[in-house]
Structure formats: structure tokens, C-alpha cells
Design a protein around this nucleic acid. Structure first.
Lengths: 82, 82
DNA sequence: CAGTATCCATGAGGATACTG
DNA sequence: CAGTATCCTCATGGATACTG
């Protein structure tokens, strides 16, 4: 949870959960790891570009982590970090 | 705190504190009522239009309340609702 | 002092099609 | 399946000037 370098804790907080779908992603991942497609479905109106983007940002902030299974078709699972 | 009519609690939450300055306003008001100009100063880089707008929205959501003292120069005080 | 009026910039988010 | 590439829209926020 590297959210240092913020003068303001509120800034830090909103930067983490401020994205339109970020809080929801984290929320769903509380119940355990989910595949990309599962998140995509449960979010219903998100576009794949946006979901992908927000997941990456959450990952960059060490909120969630990604696991790639080199299969065909590919399988990518997201889960919360500890 | 009328935040009904939301299918999603996360939506409700971000709608309340999602504005760039809203959470900060609420934060400063925890220590007691503040005048418009006090909030304006402490926020430093907010423009008056935006501050005004976000305060109104917080008011509309019953998060804060406004008190106007009919003096000259005018005095307007904001505080958290209970 | 506490706003409003105007006008402007930006980027977050979205739709759709395509690919390894 | 899990994204990327392109292109687009619009809300949010901002700068500045003005006013009761």
C-alpha cells in the first residue's frame, strides 16, 4: 500500500478509490480472486478498456495483484494483496 | 444524509465525497464551523466558483449546512449537519 | 465577503473493432 | 479470454472579472 508522498491523506484516499470502478473492483475481490471476465460481467456497464486501465492502476498501487495462467484461452486472475 | 435511491453503496459513497474538494471541506468542518473565506484560504488552490459549487452540493445532500448572517460585509458560515 | 457569470481546458471515461 | 487501438463525448474543474 505505497501511498506515501501525499501531503494530504484525503488526496491519497481518493487517488486509490476515486476511479469510477476501482472501489467496486476491490469490493468484489474481497470475496476471493476473480477472473477478468468475471469482473467485466459483474460491473455490467464498464467497457473493457476502462476496466483494464483501472485494474492496472490498482495493481500499480499494490492494492490488487494479477496472476496470468499461460493457457489457451488465456486465464487472468485478480486478487487483493495482503 | 439522504443517499437513498442508489443501487450501489459504493456509488453512493463516491457521490458524496468524490468531488475534488468535498472530502477536504468536510474534514475541515469537523473542527467546527468555518466561513466561506476560511475554507477558501485553507484549500489554497480552489477557485471560488468550484468551492461554491461543491459546498452547494454537500448542502443539497445534507452533509453540511449554511448559515447566513445578514451583515455588511456578508458573513456565511458552514458546518456539518448532525 | 461571498458569491455569480463567462468562457475555457483537460482528462476520465466510453463505444467499437480488432488481436495474440 | 483478456486485453489494445482508435476515436469521441462530456462532465468536472479552472481563470478571471464582476456584483449586492
Amino acid at each position: 500500500m505505497k501511498v506515501y508522498d501525499y501531503e494530504c491523506p484525503i488526496d491519497a484516499t481518493l487517488n486509490v478509490i476515486g476511479g469510477k470502478w476501482k472501489a467496486s473492483c476491490v469490493y468484489y475481490l474481497i470475496n476471493g480472486p476473480k477472473r477478468y471476465s468475471e469482473l467485466f460481467e459483474v460491473l455490467e456497464t464498464v467497457s473493457s478498456r476502462i476496466l483494464s486501465k483501472q485494474l492496472k492502476e490498482l495493481e500499480a498501487q499494490d492494492i490488487i495483484k494479477q496472476e496470468v495462467f499461460p493457457e489457451s484461452p488465456p486465464k487472468v486472475v485478480y486478487s487483493l494483496t495482503e
